[in-house]
Design a binder for these strands. Structure first.
Lengths: 114, 114
DNA sequence: TGTCTATGTTGACACATGTCGAAGCTTTGG
DNA sequence: CCAAAGCTTCGACATGTGTCAACATAGACA
């Protein structure tokens, strides 16, 4: 397990209002926004981000109205986008937020974020 | 024309790490992120946001590698998501950034944005 | 009126995505 | 070693989405 998938989503690009994005930059950046562009994923992410200790086991957050395989599928997408990392400890798998990619997203929103 | 579509995407929700989002909040918020979750849309948005004067005519930004109808389609999506507004002035249609929705997105990224 | 230019809309298509049930893998605990 | 619990993967299906060509619309200008 661990986070060997988080390759494509390192901090990337300038603020969106600085200059037009290139095609390659846009592909990389769109992947980050796309990962949060689904309601179920957004709820899962928010559940992890707001959980005490900064991490949550799947069992803590899987009550979002879809089946457990679907939860797992969405968590995988969030991992692949670099937004979450996972770690198995005994029986349970714990997820936590990967701050760097979110920081990149915030930076791209630039002045608007303030 | 104008921006009569920008209904669903007003500033909405607390920072993602404050508390778990409700289903309704997640639907509204995911729509904003989803709108920027496509490379072509991200390039169009960035082209408008970085254009001098804060606005751009379609003819200024439509060189993103897809056909003209596709550009129009994506600009419509960005309008519906509340990220852009459009206005016709004579022959040309001008697009500009709607700051409020971006501010909402930035606020949701919370501490990470800094 | 008519024609040209700039955008938007429609219809069709291929592909991506969200969803589930069933099956598989891992660890814990008898 | 076996069974149960937690999570992931697989296979299948319906729906959503990006794309284009063709057509429609709106304004400028003759």
């Amino acid at each position: 397990m661990s986070n060997m998938e988080a390759l494509t989503a390192e901090p990337c690009c300038p603020p969106l209002n600085e200059r037009p994005l290139s095609a390659e930059e846009a592909v990389r950046t769109a992947a980050m926004f796309k990962a949060l562009g689904d309601p179920v994923r957004l709820r899962l992410f928010s559940a992890v981000a707001s959980h005490e200790g900064g991490e949550a086991c799947v069992c803590d957050i899987s009550d979002v109205g879809v089946s457990q395989p679907t939860v797992s599928h969405h968590l995988k997408k969030l991992r692949e986008a670099g937004l979450l990392t996972s770690e198995r400890r005994g029986t349970w798998v714990y997820y936590r937020v990967a701050p760097s990619v979110l920081a990149a997203m915030g930076r791209m929103l630039g002045q608007y974020a303030a």
